[in-house]
Structures are given as C-alpha cells and as structure tokens.
C-alpha cells in the first residue's frame, strides 16, 4: 500500500509530453514535427465524391502521443511528486471541506441555499411550467385570445390538449373554444403549444404547485382554470408580454388600415 501512495499514477497517467504539442502545432499547415492526429484527420460532411477519404496523409505514423495535456497547465495536478507522506491527500481534502464549512458562515458563494417555503427565489422570465390561456381586458370569456384553431392540439407531442370549438346558433364555428382542456398529468411543459400558436393565445406559466388528491378529473384543467389575464402575463414575463402586445397592436392597426382602405374604395 505504501508503495502505491509513494508512486501515485497521476504522473504516469496524465504525463506531460517531452515536447508538448502547442496549439500552433495543432494547426493544419502540417509541416510541424508532431502531427496532432485528430487535427489532420476527419470528414465532417464530405462532398459525395470523396466521401470515404480518410484525409490522413500517409506519412503520419500511428502514434498516440499528441493530445496528452501538460500537467502545469492544469491547475493543481502535480507535475512531479517523488514522495508524499501517506495520508497527505486526505488531509488536503479535509482542508477543502474545512474551507467550505467555515466559508459558509461568511461567503455568500459558499452558502447558496434558501429556506424554501418561506423564502423563494423568483424564477427567470423564460422559466416555464405548464401552459395557460391569455385573455385581454377583465372578462375571461370575452377577452380570450384563443380562436379554437386546433394548432396546438395537433402539435402537442403527448397529446395533452383537447379542444372543442364553439358553434353559433347557425352551426358555424364561432372562433372561440367551448372546451379547452389540458391534462397536466400528461403535459410535459415543452412549450411547443406556445411556440406554434399563431395568435399568442397560449403562454407558459410559472406556477408549479399542481398537486391534487385525485388522479383524473382534478388534473384536467379546463378553460376557466387555464385562463389568466394579460396583466398576469406581464407580471411573470414582462419582456415577452410587451413584445406580444406591440405585435398584436401592430396587427390590429394594419387590419384597421386595410378595412378603411376597402371602405374608401367602395
């Protein structure tokens, strides 16, 4: 055992080259003494004609000395250590532990946790849990942006969304959902629905505490539970919400202008 301690294979294993390969040696203008084997080889996406050419010049010998990094460059990896007191490695490790333990009293960097339920870290704006439906104004029913176009329903990878469109008294589609269910036991929060929605009607929420006692019905969120106001969207992700507002406003103006033009033409 002592012998093992005295000759740690650190040196054998990650040994510096006799003539270390510098980065310039690794470049492709291959007149240097040592070819970096992996550098001169390779076919990324070769043209079909030479698809299988190896690209390795014949002169390169099949040796494996090149890429071994030098020890000095790598922080604390010792370069030469002929004799070490048995146990000194453990003592070194203990010093690290001690530094962390005492450090946690003074150094913010070493104490990173918070007292969770009482203290909460605000998630970043892009953070996401499950989707919600955005409505404008105060009325969740009238202001809902969703037009029941079924795009998200088709694209949802685990098929967690189920939409039934509303129909007016003549049986024509009324461009709003009668039923909009998301099964959050199936939803994986991938945000593809929010990404493909052409009307910016579905966005990703930050809310995480969705536990319930029952398996099915209470994990299927309906339209009323999913609808949240645009003001709420501004509180969780104001960058995105502002951008969406500007985009919708521009769209509305464009439509308005087009309508006026048509009216003038008549």
């Amino acid at each position: 055992m002592t012998q093992l301690y005295q000759q740690p294979r650190i040196n054998g294993s990650i040994q510096p080259n006799q003539e270390p390969v510098t980065d310039t040696d690794m470049s492709l203008n291959g007149t240097t003494k040592y070819h970096h084997e992996t550098e001169v080889s390779g076919i990324a996406d070769p043209a079909p004609a030479n698809r299988l050419s190896s690209g390795v010049p014949d002169a390169v010998p099949e040796t494996r000395l090149s890429a071994r990094p030098t020890a000095g460059e790598y922080g604390n990896t010792p370069e030469r250590r002929p004799f070490r007191l048995p146990g000194s490695g453990i003592v070194q490790g203990m010093m690290v532990t001690a530094r962390n333990w005492f450090g946690s009293y003074f150094d913010r960097k070493r104490l990173v946790t918070v007292q969770y339920p009482e203290q909460q870290i605000r998630p970043p704006e892009n953070s996401r849990s499950i989707p919600f439906l955005v409505y404008d104004g105060d009325d969740p029913d009238a202001g809902l942006r969703c037009v029941a176009c079924h795009t998200c329903e088709k694209e949802c990878p685990p098929q967690a969304i189920s939409i039934v469109g509303e129909r007016d008294e003549n049986g024509k589609p009324a461009r709003r959902p009668k039923v909009f269910d998301i099964d959050i036991s199936v939803c994986m929060g991938c945000q593809i629905c929010a990404e493909v929605c052409p009307f910016d009607a579905i966005k990703m929420d930050h809310y995480l505490d969705h536990s319930s006692l029952e398996n099915f019905q209470s994990l299927i969120l309906g339209k009323t539970r999913l609808s949240k106001s645009n003001a709420y969207f501004h509180t969780i992700n104001s960058t995105d919400a502002t951008a969406v507002d500007a985009r919708l406003e521009a769209d509305r103006k464009k439509k308005e202008a087009a309508r006026q033009k048509r009216a003038a033409a008549k």
Partner: peptide, 16 residues
Amino acid sequence: LDEMEQLLVSNEILIS
C-alpha cells in the same frame, strides 16, 4: 475545479 482536484485527485482512498 482546483478545489475539486485538491479534494479528489491525490486522495489515497480514492487512488486505491
């Protein structure tokens, strides 16, 4: 990484 190396790389138990 320096700290991790100090903690691990030369630790005799880990080596053996």
